[in-house]
Write a protein that binds this DNA or RNA. Structure first.
Lengths: 136, 136
DNA sequence: ATACATGCAAACAATTTGCATATTA
DNA sequence: TAATATGCAAATTGTTTGCATGTAT
């Protein structure tokens, strides 16, 4: 899944291709890590000085609805990256810069038998740390 | 670790034992699940009609600092439960009422070899679902 | 032309802070 | 009495919404 695929999905759903939308999505794609609305704004404002948070949030909300982005909370602030479409997997996440590394195993296999009478709707597994560059 | 232990730790750190603090901490203890600041307020306001969010947040912040509570984010809202002191473990969490069940395995054992040059500071593993009572 | 997008300003909700007063040790 | 806590009000931060205008189809 690349930039063009995402835009095609949006088009197919009736959403329009605007300069701002392209810039926002490209900006998220460019980083292989989780970015906040604020980081996206700073990035995109170079080209679109008038661009504001509403537009970013509205676009993030559409992308989220269509599951085209993955969302994570870092102390009360949401950060986003484009969804991976490879098979189900988990991440090692740098808590400083948001950088991610894909983990090779899903731990759910260990736990199939322990959910009791819960109706499982999802799970989250993330390892946090500092990447090489952020270890100062 | 019970209520008295927590109060003793606070006392030892120079924090004072007030009626409100006791009520807040007791209210979190009483529920074996994650509760929000709002839920704590509603609970405790019966006995302390004047009690306000600032006091709850200030207390949660102290408890968090001392790692006496565990925190989780449910769509932008923080929820808390008293820390478990048993050995390291993970939870099955009901996304509707915050109820938790302790899981018997930590998946980190599967993944020791894959962290590369990350300096690991922590990990999170949670299974989400609906508990029996919330499946309507 | 019509529907969807944007930008502005204003609204919101969760959380935090300054300050005067009250309470604990 | 000295240090910490509380309550109030107001500020802050992240996010959302109403509305008029602009732009893509």
């Amino acid at each position: 899944m690349d930039f063009k695929d995402v835009m095609d999905i949006l088009k197919a759903k009736g959403y329009k291709v605007t300069e701002q939308r392209r810039a926002i999505i490209q900006s998220i794609f460019k980083e292989n890590r989780y970015v906040s609305a604020k980081e996206i704004l700073y990035e995109v404002q170079h080209r679109f000085p008038g661009l504001s948070f509403d537009t970013i949030y509205r676009n993030l909300s559409i992308l989220s609805e269509l599951e085209l982005v993955e969302e994570i909370q870092f102390n009360g602030e949401a950060k986003y990256k484009m969804s991976c479409t490879e098979k189900h997997h988990h991440h090692l996440v740098c808590t400083n810069c948001g950088k991610i590394i894909v983990l090779p195993e899903c731990p759910m296999k260990l736990l199939k038998d322990f959910v009791g009478d819960f109706q499982v709707t999802g799970h989250r597994f993330e390892i946090y740390g500092l990447c090489k560059d952020c270890q100062e």
